[in-house]
Design a protein around this nucleic acid. Structure first.
Lengths: 237, 237
DNA sequence: AAATAAAGTTAGTCTTGGCTAAAGTTTTTC
DNA sequence: GAAAAACTTTAGCCAAGACTAACTTTATTT
């Protein structure tokens, strides 16, 4: 097991921040025996596996991660804290661009992806306060608190919702601008009322009714990215 | 004379943008025989002279500058255009932070210095429009137009103004946050009415009256950074 | 349980953009 | 106009963070 050797503790570079954020996003909510794999990181970041291995060693030396060669990687507190900060910066900025500068939801991600690394704490807090300290961004994703804690609602993918059960759209995860524009065009905004009327077999498209008005055929893969409140707990009781 | 060899024309890196902006800022308004010197650049950027020489070769190869070893450097159109863009980004952002996010004058520069390199054209235009397309930033510096043109008013340093001639403060150049706070504390804001009552010999401090109210002793070096409308032309006629 | 496939690591290279030390050029000074 | 001072460039080095090619480890198949 690699562990911290001699940390100089400079401010983490943009590259490090990107790795830590990517690791965070790939960590499963349920703890697994294996951490995040080198290959997953390489794919998500469009970087060679060798480069990832190389960087993981440095991140481990600095104490940001636990890295067990061949078995994967998990975040330490210091690493998670940096990841959360990037996500907070990203989501606060996205919210600000939409609310104050007339951006539409599908164009904010690209801008935020770069700027998240360079916004000062002061600027992020001022934007967040100006917006009224929101808890969620325009895609419905929770904004982490300054202390790095984050709301962890149990959400269910729309693909798993029962037929004829009305649900409210709460969150739209990580889609391309084109897909987001399409979703907006069929009325899929946060808060929309959705009823699944039918699902074609073999993970086929869903027939959905939106806001009691329109019917649409929704691709299964898109349904996997749309999230609604999870009711299984209350049902199981 | 070095000139462009084989340009791949990637987007210029942050380092290149910093060099081009620094060259722009060091170019004299009156054309001189010698361009900007390696040493000046090295000092302004806090970088060794050898590193500057090295980078100038690359910038010349890409066609951004004219570089004559030992004689200095001047911007080409492509280089000047990048420099102007950085300055526009910087000044629009500064203005936005002051007007919309409650920053004070003296704290905006640091934030803008980094972010100017990462703001998209779209974002800068939206901030600029939101502000009502201002022509000057909070320090009174002109904001370059999108096409790279910039207003070139003939301004005179306060250090050169005649005694007992009221002038209006139009611009405050490049001071540290501490100095800016001090200047604000003695009423030196853009538009203030100033009268030089006396100047001590040997480039000593100026005795000034601000807004017909208060007298202050102003260090000569600070006076060099404060600019007012130039009237010499009309007087010479 | 051996063979193959998949994933991960090591070794060595490249580019960018810094650095110092030493050598060369231009300008200034006496 | 020669020596000194100031400035500039060259040469060689380094760290960060990418890459490819080759090798090792783990997982899967038969």
């Amino acid at each position: 097991m690699r562990t911290r050797k001699n940390s100089t503790k400079n401010a983490p570079s943009r590259a490090w921040e990107d790795y830590l954020k990517a690791i965070y996003k790939l960590e499963k909510p349920e703890p697994t025996d294996k951490g995040v794999q080198t290959k997953e990181l390489a794919e998500r970041m469009s970087i060679s596996q060798a480069s990832v291995t190389n960087m993981l060693k440095k991140l481990a030396d600095e104490g940001y991660i636990q890295y067990e060669p061949y078995y994967g990687v998990t975040l330490n507190d210091s690493g998670r804290s940096i990841a959360m900060k990037m996500i907070r910066n990203h989501r606060v900025l996205e919210s600000y661009l939409v609310e104050r500068l007339g951006y539409s939801w599908d164009e904010v991600d690209e801008e935020a992806e770069t700027l998240e690394h360079f916004l000062s704490d002061k600027l992020v807090e001022r934007m967040w306060n100006d917006l009224g300290q929101p808890t969620h961004d325009p895609h419905g994703s929770p904004i982490p608190n300054i202390d790095g804690t984050i709301e962890r609602k149990n959400l269910t993918s729309l693909a798993e919702v029962k037929l004829d059960t009305p649900v409210m759209l709460e969150r739209i995860k990580n889609r391309s601008p084109e897909e987001l524009r399409y979703l907006a065009s069929i009325g899929m905004h946060i808060g929309a009322k959705i009823v699944i009327k039918n699902q074609a077999p073999f993970n086929g498209p869903l027939l959905i009714e939106v806001d009691d008005q329109h019917f649409h055929a929704l691709d299964y893969r898109m349904a996997l990215a749309l999230f609604v409140e999870d009711n299984t707990d209350s049902i199981n009781h």
